[in-house]
């Protein structure tokens, strides 16, 4: 059975990044999940443009960096947060200057939109949210009366459109030779892969074992069916940590926040850490 499986191509980081076309919608994970930082740096080096970045359901440092580098035209997310590191400097500046289009959402809207895409249906209903100012700013959301409500009972409910990203981009601890990718309990990465047209994944390492052969691993493994292209990047989530593998590089993240406080400081950061070969943390 194994040898009848098609192989998923494995490319260099720059080749993988080249598959993210300018103008593409790109779904990415929050800092506590799997962030393909090595690929993000490749996108910054290339000068990717007009990306529609989707935080699943929120985004951290990679969002601030891509916005600072001018790669992002539209940001669709429940939040852009650097957590304990305070306000996101390049995001904040871009909001003030009006250089990015904001599609502010709330976490379950992003999850449910991807779930609609996963099911191949055009929309999903969701409770709550009515009366939030978000509704007025999102003309792609609609409020309808629940068609299943009891007669004469008002029951408004929000509908939101499916979110089908051009690209899901993330970093994972492990893939096997057939292109199956292990993500453990970080199943928002599974959801992203199910929903997106193309799924690009950088991984820490490759296993010679078939990840689907062991039930304990299989339940947390994205089958190769959903994976378009892989690249190897040891420590590829640096300076953000990777769940279960390594912690964030606090000193570096602190340095990023300090340098990115000004546009010129951010440019210097990009010269030092994005264009130059990084020294492994």
């Amino acid at each position: 059975m194994m040898n009848t499986r098609a192989l998923v191509p494995v490319e260099s980081i720059d080749e993988l990044a080249a598959r993210v076309a300018d103008g593409a919608s790109v779904a990415v994970a929050p800092d506590y999940s799997g962030c393909a930082m090595e690929v993000v740096r490749a996108l910054m080096r290339r000068g990717a443009r007009n990306l529609h970045l989707i935080g699943v359901p929120q985004v951290g440092f990679q969002g601030d960096m891509l916005i600072g580098a001018g790669c992002v035209a539209t940001l669709e997310t429940a939040a852009l947060t650097l957590g304990e590191y305070g306000p996101a400097p390049r995001f904040t500046a871009a909001v003030r200057e009006g250089t990015i289009v904001l599609r502010d959402a709330t976490c379950p809207v992003i999850h449910a939109g991807l779930q609609a895409a996963e099911k191949g249906v055009p929309f999903m209903p969701l409770r709550g949210i009515l009366g939030s100012d978000l509704v007025g700013h999102r003309n792609d959301w609609k409020v309808i009366e629940n068609p299943f409500a009891k007669a004469n009972k008002e029951d408004p409910i929000l509908l939101l459109p499916a979110i089908r990203p051009d690209v899901a981009l993330f970093h994972a601890p492990l893939a096997d030779r057939w292109g199956n990718v292990w993500i453990g309990v970080r199943r928002e990465l599974m959801l992203m892969a199910h929903a997106a047209r193309t799924t690009l994944v950088s991984v820490e390492a490759f296993s010679d074992e078939d990840l689907l052969a062991d039930d304990r691993l299989a339940a947390g493994t994205i089958p190769a069916l959903y994976i378009s292209t892989l690249a190897k990047a040891a420590n590829g989530a640096w300076p953000i940590g990777l769940f279960g593998r390594y912690a964030p590089d606090h000193a570096h993240l602190q340095r990023y926040v300090e340098m990115a406080a000004t546009a010129s400081g951010f440019e210097q950061y990009v010269r030092e850490y994005v264009h130059k070969q990084r020294v492994s943390a």
Binding site: P57, Q58, T77, A78, A79, L80, T81, P87, A88, F91, T92, V95, R96, E97, G98, V101, L102, D104, A105, T106, C107, P108, V109, L126, R127, G128, I129, L130, S132, D133, L134, H137
Partner: peptide, 25 residues
């Protein structure tokens, strides 16, 4: 979201996270 007028807020906060949902449920 932030202070001042959306979307070009004077001071921008991170975003609404799941508040618009969890506050109801």
């Amino acid at each position: 979201i932030g202070t001042g007028e959306y979307p070009r807020n004077r001071i921008r906060f991170p975003g609404s996270f799941g508040s618009a949902y969890l506050y109801f449920l």
